[in-house]
Design a protein around this nucleic acid. Structure first.
Lengths: 309, 309
DNA sequence: CTCAGCGGGAGGTCCCCTCAC
DNA sequence: GTGAGGGGACCTCCCGCTGAG
């Protein structure tokens, strides 16, 4: 009922074949899968974020080339007119704080904020009824309430109209910090997207009771997406970003940077022991050399099955 | 005369601030900087590759959702019509081999292939003259040849027209494997881009001799981009891609996967020793548990300065 | 050579609608 | 609820051209 994070092996092979073992494309694909499938970002949001990254690359070259529009345009095959527009856009964004289209928060705001806004706008004190729909006996209300799964946050059950208004409020709130030029109007298509995401992730459930002729909606989770998976995905993105930074220091041949890859085969019954020993060994190493007030350092490591040689 | 890979610290701070410490955006930015600035990919090529990655994410969800166009569209906020077009595009690409727009080779073909095509089409045997321009005395030809830097590959020096034709040939060759629908016509703008990249990277130099009234072009490097840096950048992209894959196994909670981050401070005079010890320790660990024919494993690690806490 | 403007075309992201199964 | 079709808006990535400093 949560995400279909299990990709069939043949599908994964297809995707791998599609990017033709090109590591740069493989990174892009992993990033798209993580942010869109697991994070719930829109397709357009991912494209916008990628465009922003490319624009920043152009901007940084523009600065390095001594603010030369034409040179920058030639280097990346972009019209001078477009280069100028991009530079102005970036500079305006840097001057007045955030206003670029990025993925920004790890999850889209209109999804993560929903449980909080719901409980804030439609609270339900202890002893109060969750269902306020007219024309129901107290017994019928109890029946609906008892149908909710365990662990449901205390919040009112909404009808179609209330739920739609809540989603619109959510969307408007998330748009407030954006400049007027890049705000997206609320639309039916966008509402369907948000609604589907909330139902798909199990944050909200739809109740089609025979007692009422309209569908009801109930908040059944205190947070968007299950806790454990969410945190692991965040940690993964975080690790990859930091690892990327470390390797760039290695490419620049900065002092005090180490990078390595060890390839080996291990007997199946020794694998667990080997990994445990590695974990302890690295912890001990970091402890041994730790000294308060010294150079701030970080060591990242990952070990696992080798996919392709 | 090669790449301006040294980014001023304040510019880097600006870029960091622009992506607002969002790790996903930071990965995108690093990828854009690596492929565009160092790799020489076009702006449009990076955007296409990002779009392809997002399309593949849509395609994989489409399969998982039981070939349901509408559900897939809702999940990513894409029109059903567009979802269908994307799915058909991907399936056609998977059926008849590669035809998606990806970064593919780590460098654009029209840049890496140039030194080889040049030497193939305009060879210069030992003892032959590099300059075949009419109206020059042997002495004047010698003068031009002696102006070339050391280590120049043996190949003819070209005039404007020959050089342009070579670039067009290069472009047409690189387009041959693409389906007709997504081929890009050769244009002046594209030629200027390729020419500028070749001059900027130091693969080709332009000779404006007072002896001839037209500019001449000489191949002065046997490969696009300097060897050392090129290989380090490739290794970096490769490492990040594999690391990403390892962490995804960790997110799925596969057996036999270890992931870790160690944060610590080190005394400046102990840093080098610590890193050397770490390197040897990990090598010894991999050797200790290596057993031919066992489970194929890989360990990746990187250590360096901690940028932000 | 650089910078500035104009024009156009193709394709993509968005929006909405109807109709048949 | 799903597939398949129509419409239109806007942006941006491509191309080409001319003229002013």
């Amino acid at each position: 009922m949560t995400y279909q994070s299990q990709v069939p092996p043949d599908l994964k092979q297809d995707l791998l074949r599609a990017v033709d073992n090109s590591p740069a494309d493989w990174i892009l694909l992993n990033l798209a899968l993580s942010t869109m499938k697991m994070g719930g970002h829109r397709y357009g949001a991912f494209l916008d974020a990628a465009t922003t990254a490319a624009k920043l690359a152009i901007y940084s070259t523009f600065i390095e080339q001594g603010n030369n529009i034409r040179k920058t345009g030639f280097l990346y095959h972009v019209e001078p007119k477009r280069v100028k527009a991009i530079v102005q856009e970036i500079q305006a964004a840097l001057a007045e704080g955030q206003s670029l289209k990025v993925l920004n928060s790890k999850e889209p705001y209109y999804l993560i904020a929903l449980p909080f806004l719901w409980q804030e706008h439609f609270p339900c004190g202890p002893g109060e009824a969750r269902v306020l729909i007219q024309g129901l006996t107290p017994g019928e209300r109890k029946t609906i309430e008892n149908g909710l799964p365990a662990g449901t946050p205390r919040a009112r059950i909404l009808d179609q109209v209330e739920f739609n208004e809540l989603m619109e409020l959510l969307h408007q709130t998330s748009q407030e910090e954006l400049p007027k030029t890049q705000r997206m109007p609320f639309s039916d298509a966008l509402m369907s997207h948000i609604k589907f995401r909330l139902l798909h992730s199990g944050t909200v459930i739809q109740i089609d009771s025979s007692l009422v002729d309209i569908p009801l909606y109930a908040l059944v989770s205190a947070s968007y997406s299950p806790r454990g998976e969410q945190e692991r995905v965040f940690a993964m993105i975080d690790d990859v970003a930091r690892y990327f930074g470390l390797l760039q220091a290695w490419v620049r041949e900065d002092a005090g940077v180490l990078r390595g890859v060890e390839v080996f085969d291990v007997a199946p019954d020794q694998r667990q022991q080997a990994l445990e020993e590695l974990d302890e060994m690295l912890r001990a190493w970091a402890d041994k050399y730790h000294q308060d007030g010294g150079l701030p350092m970080v060591l990242q490591f990952a070990a696992g099955r080798r996919e392709y040689d």
